[in-house]
Amino acid sequence: MLIPIRTGKNNWSAQQPCILLAGDIGGTKTNLASYKYDGKTFSLLKENKYRTKNYDDLGKMISDFLAGSKTPDRMCFGVAGPVLNGKVQITNVPWGIDSKQISGLYNNIPVHLINDLETTAYGLAVLEEKDIHIVHKGKHTPGNWGIIAPGTGLGEAGLYWDGKTAHPFPTEGGHCDFAPRTDPDIDMFIYLKKKFGHVSWERLLSGPGIFTIYEFLRDVKEMDVPAWLTDKMLAHDDASALISENADDVPICTETMNLFMRYLAIEAANLALKVKATAGIFIGGGIMPKNLKYLDTHTFTRWFHDFGRMRHLLEDIPVKIILNDKTALLGAAWYAVNPIE
C-alpha cells in the first residue's frame, strides 16, 4: 500500500467474498475487469479493452463483457467527467450514464460512478513501490497529495490527509485556463484562442494536446516536417503516438515532447499549490509511462520549482509517476468494497 486510503463506514472488507465488476471509462478506450475479492486481496478473473466510441452506451458494453459470466455482486466505474447524484455526461464522448439505470439491469446490485481520477487515487491503496518511478524525491512532509493524469483528456484530483488516512476527491482542474509564461507561450495561447475559444490546460496536456503542440510548431513556428512523416500521419489513426515515437530523430517531434513535458511540470506544480500537496504529486495516465525517455528530470524539476515565492514549498514536494496501467481499475475495485455512501 502506497497510501493508507480511508474505508467506508459499511465496507465489505470483513464480509464474505464477492465478485466485482470494475471499469475505467475514458474518451478513447474503456477497460472492464471482473475481480474476486476475498476480504483482503483482489484476484483478476477477466479483463477486456474496448474502443469507447464503438458503443452507444455503457449498458451494451457491460452486457458484452458479462456474456456467459455470473452477474457480479457490485460494480464501480471510474468515468472521465463530473459525477453528480450518480449521473455523468462523459466529457469527450456523447454518453450519459446513470448508476441507478445500470443497477436496475442487474438485480439492483450496488453500482457506483466516481471520477476516473478518483479511481486512480483509490488505486494507490493497492499499489507497491515497484509501480512507481521517482522524478523528484523531495522530503515528504505529512499532508495532502495531488494526482494529475494526461490521457485523452487531463484529469486532476487530490487526496486530503486527516492525520491517519487519505480521502480522495475529484476536481475538474484540467479545464482551468492555460497561463503562458514565455513569449512563445503567448504565441501558443493566441493560436489556441483562435482555434478553441477557451484555452484550458487540457488542450495541451493530453493525447490530442500533443498533436496540437505539433500543429503550432508546424503552422506558426514553421518548423520543418519531413514528407514521410506527413504521409504516415495521413495513414495513422494516432498522430500523437507517431509524434512521440519519432521524438528521438525528428526535431519538430522532439520540440513537441519538450514543450509537453514543460507544460506538465508547470501544471503539476499549479495543482500542488492549489491542494497544498506537501506529501507529493503523482502523475498518472497512459502517456507518461510510454514516454519516460523524453523526461529530462533536471528540466522538469526546474520548471516545477520555478514559482517565485513558493519555490521553497515546491522544492520539498516529491513527484512520482504511476507506472501500473491497471491503477484505475484496481481503484474502482477498491471503491466497490469501500464506498463512501
Rank of each mutant, 00 (worst) to 15 (best):
V88G: 04
H133C: 10
D56R: 09
L58S: 05
L21N: 08
H112V: 07
P318A: 02
A67E: 13
T297R: 13
Y35A: 07
G331V: 06
M223H: 06
G143A: 05
N108F: 09
P17T: 09
L229H: 11
N92T: 15
T120V: 13
D64G: 14
P82Q: 13
S43H: 14
F307K: 05
K293R: 15
T52E: 06
I148W: 01
A279D: 07
V319D: 04
I266E: 02
I25G: 02
D325C: 05
A332I: 10
A149P: 00
E215Y: 13
N324V: 03
D38Q: 07
D38T: 04
D56S: 14
E267N: 15
H167N: 12
F216E: 02
H112T: 10
P184T: 06
K29M: 08
I283S: 00
N258L: 12
P142M: 08
F216G: 04
T165E: 11
P208H: 12
T301A: 10
D38K: 04
D185C: 12
M310C: 10
L113V: 04
N270G: 12
L124Y: 01
D231H: 14
P208Y: 11
D248K: 12
K276Q: 14
T28E: 03
I340R: 11
Y50E: 08
T297F: 07
L204S: 03
